[in-house]
Design a protein around this nucleic acid. Structure first.
Lengths: 337, 337
DNA sequence: TATGTTTTGGTTACCGATAACACGAATGGT
DNA sequence: ACCATTCGTGTTATCGGTAACCAAAACATA
């Protein structure tokens, strides 16, 4: 069964034509008669020939790869973005080369280097904070770079994202507008999750701007924060700051965990304490009560990124400058706050 | 900024050595002095040179790619498997090339063809049901093939999985052991999700084997079934078969949706109706009540698959036969059933 | 010092496709 | 019937690395 892999040469031989003709038969290229093309295709299929992209990539200097890094593959938000990105790029015949950095910029650096070796035609990174060397590699790569899920002050190239800090300001305003002022924040206790850290900073800044106490910060463990960690953080919050009126969690997963902890303790949500999350995960819309959250439209980030890439690659000759697409997030008021 | 990409030739020129020496400096190859290797590495970094795998892959006929197809990227179970697989393979310098088929075997066929063009050194597919042409392509590929998340009767090559039907038999036994006999099943209403369909068939077979009525099957929509669809299916079940004692859902997500529907209707779980899920998603362990579920150990499937691949590739000369690793699932008895 | 061995680095050909160019045959307009 | 296009196909060189082979230098041993 372990055949040596067939090449175009084998097909050419079997079809009695030159290798070049076989090559042509596998493309849109009109310079082959329909008759020979069909014949070659059939022969190729019969022989079990599979086109070798590797060789074509080298010759044409085009890989049809778009590299993508995300913090974790096991996160519905990022998965949504990658899914949408991948589907849209597939329509244009491009393939996603995915890597995950484990919420670690040092790991991201290793990953970016590995991915660039594969000569992708564009690269998408999640977030706007990177090591110095990562920045340098991305700048030198000579391909479009898109930073997503963030709105960096000093972008490397293109940006498709939103301000994590602004979402927190929006949520603080929403809660304050409901007459709640003793607010807390539950998030990771390191800056490994740079977007989570941005949200925490955004919370603190928004509170201070309104002359409110911003010291109720609960560290829930190493990012990403799970439901379970959200629950234990809520336990800690209820013990340490029993008069807290509302808590913003770094994600809906921790928010749901927090909610279950309240249920276990008989604390009513939102009457005794309001809970808000982030991400508009499906659970936010179906839990009981439903969770107030921020929808950053992950799929939209994916499609917009894909379309930006296709547009930039298409206009490569026209020298299109860095593009910036801001995604408008929504605050989904629901039952929990 | 749009430099033309540097090649080894540029580095060789700058370092005053031959291209071959540069090539050697980038490998374990001992036939270069440590002094020149360090010098070349430094010069390369300064020039912003990035190694081109494409060329190396063509020459060596090795890509370090392992292709993987999953039904959906947005599924915590498959994400766990891919994450574990990817991490383990990365240790061996291999990279995962991921594609998703949208729970559609025709789409899987397209995907497999695309992936094989990239000349992966092994390919992992989820499930044991494929189109005839997919089977043929995989058989002809001349690389190790691993079918996962299933235990096919007629495997293509290697297998790392478990019997979906057996898990349902186990769950039926568990529920019957609790004195419940009027059981229902909630799942997708097409066979798009082949593993889900296997579980439904397993449920029916197990019921019939125990002389129980297996007609309480609720179709919840096109796979994958969401929490929301689980909720509406539960509504339908409560209306159509009000005396049902327990329901098995095709996944924990639909089980959780079903649970929330019960909460909305004031139906007590498990006193009025017991609910069981599948997958051991995090939510099963933290919802209130916690959900009785099957843990198929998704990460274990990933690491076992990775190790099988490394072992088989390593022993390529030794002609190792098809391997079959059965993953032992656990029934996690919890509060909901 | 002479000879054998190891280390280090260079030369050439090649992986499997395709761009660029070439050329004979078919087609068309007058 | 003649010359200009267009069409269909072949030939050659090439993409950027590396295997295989080779040669000079460095080192070791008698």
């Amino acid at each position: 069964m372990q055949h040596s892999a067939k090449t175009m040469k084998d097909v050419a031989l079997a079809a009695g034509v030159s290798v070049m003709t076989v090559s042509r038969a596998f493309k849109q290229d009109t310079s082959v008669s329909e008759a020979t093309r069909a014949r070659i295709r059939t022969i190729a299929e019969d022989l079990g020939y599979v086109f070798d992209s590797t060789a074509a990539n080298l010759r044409t200097q085009k890989t049809n790869f778009v590299a993508v890094t995300i913090p974790s593959i096991n996160n519905a938000n990022f998965a949504d973005t990658v899914g949408a990105l991948s589907d849209r790029l597939a329509q244009a015949g491009m393939q996603v080369l995915l890597g995950h950095s484990g919420y670690d910029v040092a790991q991201e650096e290793v990953l970016v280097e590995q991915l660039l070796r594969r000569r992708p035609e564009a690269i998408v990174v999640t977030g706007g904070r990177h090591t110095e060397r990562t920045r340098k590699m991305l700048l030198n790569a000579g391909i479009p770079v898109v930073e997503t899920w963030d709105l960096p002050d000093d972008p490397i190239d293109h940006v498709v994202g939103f301000s994590n800090a602004a979402t927190m300001a929006g949520m603080v305003d929403y809660l304050v507008g409901k007459g709640l002022s003793r607010l807390a924040f539950i998030g990771g206790d390191t800056d490994g999750d740079t977007r989570g850290a941005d949200r925490r900073r955004g919370f603190v800044a928004a509170m201070q701007a309104r002359n409110l106490d911003a010291s109720r910060l609960i560290g829930a463990g190493k990012p990403p924060i799970s439901m379970r960690e959200g629950a234990s953080a809520m336990g800690q919050l209820l013990n340490d700051f029993p008069d807290t009126q509302a808590v913003i969690c770094v994600s809906d997963l921790s928010a749901f965990g927090a909610l279950t902890e309240c249920q276990r303790r008989g604390v009513r949500v939102p009457q005794d304490i309001a809970i808000a999350g982030f991400g508009a995960y499906e659970i936010a819309g179906i839990s009981h009560p439903t969770i107030t959250t921020i929808n950053p439209h992950p799929r939209l980030i994916g499609t917009q990124t894909a379309e930006l890439i296709l547009q930039v690659l298409d206009a490569a000759n026209t020298r299109l400058g860095p593009q910036r697409r801001e995604i408008h997030w929504d605050l989904q008021g629901a039952e929990s706050a």
